[in-house]
Amino acid sequence: MTVAVRGPLSDALREKIIAVCDAKLASKGPGVGLSFYAFFANKNDTPGLLIEVATWWIQTQQLDHFEKASKIKQLVQAQ
Protein backbone atom coordinates (compact mmCIF):
# COMPACT_ATOMS: atom_id res chain seq x y z
CA MET A 1 0.00 0.00 0.00
CA THR A 2 1.42 3.37 -1.01
CA VAL A 3 0.62 6.22 1.33
CA ALA A 4 0.57 9.70 -0.15
CA VAL A 5 2.03 12.50 1.92
CA ARG A 6 -0.14 15.58 1.54
CA GLY A 7 -0.12 18.63 3.82
CA PRO A 8 2.90 18.72 6.13
CA LEU A 9 2.66 18.74 9.90
CA SER A 10 4.02 21.67 11.87
CA ASP A 11 7.67 21.36 12.93
CA ALA A 12 6.75 21.26 16.64
CA LEU A 13 4.25 18.47 16.04
CA ARG A 14 6.67 16.48 13.88
CA GLU A 15 9.28 16.66 16.67
CA LYS A 16 6.72 15.58 19.28
CA ILE A 17 5.53 12.62 17.20
CA ILE A 18 9.10 11.45 16.54
CA ALA A 19 9.99 11.77 20.25
CA VAL A 20 6.93 9.76 21.31
CA CYS A 21 7.63 7.09 18.69
CA ASP A 22 11.28 6.88 19.79
CA ALA A 23 10.24 6.48 23.44
CA LYS A 24 7.67 3.78 22.62
CA LEU A 25 10.12 1.91 20.40
CA ALA A 26 12.83 2.06 23.10
CA SER A 27 10.53 0.81 25.85
CA LYS A 28 8.34 -1.69 23.99
CA GLY A 29 10.34 -2.76 20.94
CA PRO A 30 9.88 -2.59 17.17
CA GLY A 31 6.42 -4.18 17.14
CA VAL A 32 4.76 -1.53 19.30
CA GLY A 33 1.64 0.08 17.92
CA LEU A 34 0.02 3.36 18.82
CA SER A 35 -2.86 5.63 17.90
CA PHE A 36 -2.79 9.36 17.34
CA TYR A 37 -4.03 9.79 20.91
CA ALA A 38 -0.55 8.68 22.09
CA PHE A 39 0.72 12.19 21.42
CA PHE A 40 -1.63 13.86 23.90
CA ALA A 41 -2.46 13.82 27.60
CA ASN A 42 -5.81 12.43 28.76
CA LYS A 43 -7.01 15.99 29.31
CA ASN A 44 -6.07 17.65 26.06
CA ASP A 45 -5.13 21.29 26.47
CA THR A 46 -4.15 21.70 22.80
CA PRO A 47 -7.26 20.88 20.74
CA GLY A 48 -5.81 22.51 17.62
CA LEU A 49 -2.86 20.11 17.63
CA LEU A 50 -5.17 17.16 18.23
CA ILE A 51 -7.20 18.15 15.16
CA GLU A 52 -4.00 18.59 13.14
CA VAL A 53 -2.79 15.09 14.01
CA ALA A 54 -6.24 13.52 13.56
CA THR A 55 -6.61 15.11 10.13
CA TRP A 56 -3.13 13.98 9.07
CA TRP A 57 -3.68 10.45 10.47
CA ILE A 58 -7.25 9.81 9.29
CA GLN A 59 -7.78 11.91 6.17
CA THR A 60 -4.33 12.51 4.71
CA GLN A 61 -2.63 9.20 5.47
CA GLN A 62 -5.80 7.07 5.78
CA LEU A 63 -4.24 5.05 8.59
CA ASP A 64 -5.94 2.47 10.81
CA HIS A 65 -6.66 3.36 14.43
CA PHE A 66 -3.49 1.57 15.60
CA GLU A 67 -0.30 1.60 13.55
CA LYS A 68 3.28 0.58 14.25
CA ALA A 69 5.34 3.37 15.80
CA SER A 70 8.12 2.66 13.30
CA LYS A 71 5.74 3.29 10.38
CA ILE A 72 4.48 6.56 11.88
CA LYS A 73 8.02 7.76 12.53
CA GLN A 74 9.01 6.93 8.95
CA LEU A 75 5.99 8.77 7.50
CA VAL A 76 6.67 11.87 9.60
CA GLN A 77 10.38 11.91 8.75
CA ALA A 78 9.56 11.67 5.04
CA GLN A 79 7.78 15.02 5.13
Rank of each mutant, 00 (worst) to 15 (best):
K24E: 10
K73P: 00
L50Q: 13
Q79H: 05
E67A: 10
L25Q: 05
Q62F: 10
L49K: 11
H65K: 08
K16W: 01
A26Q: 07
K73S: 05
S35W: 02
K16E: 03
G33I: 04
E52S: 14
E52W: 12
T60S: 04
V53F: 14
K68F: 10
N44P: 12
L75F: 13
S70L: 10
A26E: 08
G48M: 15
F66L: 09
A4N: 15
V20R: 03
L63I: 05
A4H: 15
P30I: 00
A26C: 05
V5A: 05
D64Q: 12
I58N: 11
M1Q: 14
K16F: 01
I51E: 14
R14N: 08
G29I: 02
I51V: 13
A12S: 08
T2K: 15
A38W: 06
E67V: 14
I18S: 00
H65S: 08
D22P: 00
T2N: 15
K28Y: 07
L9D: 07
L13S: 07
L25W: 07
H65Q: 09
W56S: 07
A4D: 15
K28L: 08
D64E: 11
I72W: 04
E15I: 01
N44H: 13
K71A: 07
L50D: 12
Y37A: 10
H65I: 12
T55H: 09
G29F: 02
V53W: 14
P47F: 15
N44T: 05
S35V: 08
L25R: 09
F36Q: 01
G31H: 08
A4Q: 15
S27M: 11
F36P: 01
D11R: 08
R14K: 09
S70G: 02
V32M: 06
K24S: 03
I58V: 09
W56T: 00
T60L: 07
S10Y: 10
V32Q: 13
Y37M: 08
F66V: 14
K28G: 00
L49A: 14
L9Y: 10
N42A: 14
F40C: 05
P30G: 11
D11F: 07
K28I: 00
F40Q: 03
P47Q: 15
I72T: 09
M1E: 15
P8W: 09
V3K: 14
P30F: 03
L34E: 03
D11G: 03
W56L: 04
I72N: 02
R6W: 10
Q77S: 04
W57L: 07
S35Q: 07
Q61F: 11
I51N: 13
R14E: 09
V32F: 03
S35D: 06
A54E: 08
L63K: 11
F66E: 12
A54Q: 12
